[in-house]
């Protein structure tokens, strides 16, 4: 009963089977997936992110936003993703070809962000929300990110143009203002760039809504 070699082979072959099936096969099927060019409009989708937004993706990664926010819209009739307005169509593999890393997420402590750029494009909303989510969404459990902002005395030229309009208990000490740092600006650019709603043959946007 000293079947060492048999055991050894069995151990290797079982893992090899799923390594082939779930690693190599997806790589073969999707590893070279490219952009889609619309034959009517010549629009190319998806587009790579521009510099500022790409920098912002790094902050999104470093701060671990993915642990509470997904970036995937499930199909119509499966969950309420589309009914909640998180997207006009389900997301498909092609939506993610530029993402490194892909941050699909597995938890929705907060809402899905696949199309947050489309749903909320207002800069000042994003800044206030990041500075303290209670300002825009009272009762949220999202942490405040005060370290992405600088609280400083108002200079002789008066308040900065990009100072946050804070009121009540959220306002800084008199004579002070809160301005977003570079990181906050990049992060908001990233959030505003999140749009996965291009019309694709494998995931068409419903025509009446696309108008």
């Amino acid at each position: 009963m000293s079947y060492g070699p048999l055991l050894f082979l069995g151990i290797l072959f079982t893992l090899a089977s799923s390594w082939v099936g779930l690693v190599l096969m997806p790589q073969r099927q999707l590893g070279a997936l490219g952009q889609h060019t619309d034959t009517n409009t010549a629009a190319v989708y998806p587009q790579a992110r521009a510099g500022e937004a790409q920098q912002g993706a790094e902050h999104y990664r470093a701060l671990g936003c993915v642990y509470c926010h997904t970036q995937q819209v499930r199909p119509e009739g499966y969950g309420a993703d589309i009914a909640r307005g998180w997207g006009r169509r389900r997301t498909v593999s092609r939506d993610y070809i530029h993402d490194k890393p892909v941050m699909l997420g597995t938890m929705r402590t907060g809402p899905d962000l696949t199309n947050i750029g489309e749903r909320q494009s207002d800069y000042s909303w994003h800044y206030k929300h990041l500075y303290n989510p209670q300002i825009t969404s009272a009762g949220s459990v999202m942490p405040p990110y005060p370290f992405l902002f600088e609280t400083r005395p108002i200079g002789p030229m008066g308040p900065s143009t990009n100072a946050l309009a804070l009121e009540g208990t959220f306002a800084p000490a008199p004579g002070h203002e809160v301005v977003p740092t570079l990181r906050a600006r990049q992060l908001v650019e990233y959030l505003r760039s999140l749009k996965s709603s291009g019309d694709l043959p494998e995931a068409p946007v419903k025509k009446e809504e696309a108008q």
Binding site: L6, L9, F13, S17, V20, L24, Q27, R28
Partner: peptide, 25 residues
């Protein structure tokens, strides 16, 4: 990705064959 296709096809034949041979042995 012809290399991957080759590995895929090869493994479909080789893995079960090797399993059967080692069991027989």
């Amino acid at each position: 990705m012809p290399v991957i296709t080759l590995i895929l096809l090869g493994s479909i034949v080789l893995l079960p064959a090797a399993a059967l041979l080692s069991l027989r042995w």
